[in-house]
Design a protein around this nucleic acid. Structure first.
Lengths: 130, 130
DNA sequence: TAATTAGCTTACCTTTAGGTAATAAAAAAA
DNA sequence: TTTTTTTATTACCTAAAGGTAAGCTAATTA
């Protein structure tokens, strides 16, 4: 039994199954932007392995988060898109990404402030509070 | 170099450092409810090991997400609370928990909630009934 | 004297996540 | 005939997460 089958009764652990994997948020975020095929996802997510991409797509599919359309042609064409279920995850994911983004900005600001003389900082703050 | 040091430039991977661990959300969620000491957290989160609890507290502390107050007495008393930085994570976490909760309901999973700390459930129900 | 308490730390182990690389199907194009 | 293309699957390996259990501090209490 995999980690993903555990804690099915706990909201936290349940949600974690869809967002705690390294590539889960990036995959869903890009599928929100546009329904995509396998290679497209692979190219847009530099560093992901085919194994993990397949794995997550299968998992999301089985969970009803995404759906798959297979065009019977050669070479094969497959398209993945979010389901309405999957769409409900987007605001959650967007919050996470926005938090990450602004927290990164803050860290950068703090780093550059560390080398700034205190007097300059207090002056800046005085200006901001005026 | 640990996983937590990697991808420092990516908003997703940056945010993931604070929410993808098994016990990270439960810890922060409870600290939002009330500043707590080590044993209290340990008791309210059945199944967490002291090792992981210490580990996450140290990490959150070093990241400026929580702060620690040590009362010099015997036996020792220590209190952990969210910083203002840490508070910014709460809406994100709340979204995650609420998604998990409602998605569980939707699935009509007739699985019990016994693995969920009671405090989380009662708080969610309070939020939903508000 | 020995046990108790809170808050850790450490060593060791198992499980899981994720990466690498080889292989396949299947038909069209070179 | 061989190569190319897309969407996979599989075996194998490393690294990271997390669990278990023992021990430590230092004063108070039984």
């Amino acid at each position: 039994m995999s980690q993903k089958d555990l804690y099915t009764g706990c909201p936290v652990q349940h949600a974690r199954k869809y967002i705690s994997g390294k590539w889960q948020i990036p995959i869903l975020w890009y599928l929100k932007k546009q329904p995509s095929r396998f290679v497209e996802l692979k190219n847009i997510l530099p560093g992901i392995s085919e194994k993990v991409l397949t794995q997550e797509l299968r998992f999301f599919e089985a969970s009803g988060i995404i759906e798959k359309e297979v065009y019977t042609c050669i070479p094969p064409k497959v398209e993945y898109r979010l389901t309405s279920q999957g769409l409900t995850l987007i605001p959650v994911i967007q919050n996470i990404i926005q938090w990450g983004y602004s927290h990164l900005q803050e860290e950068k600001a703090n780093r550059s402030m560390r080398s700034t003389p205190v007097s300059i900082i207090t002056e800046l703050e005085a200006i901001n509070n005026a």
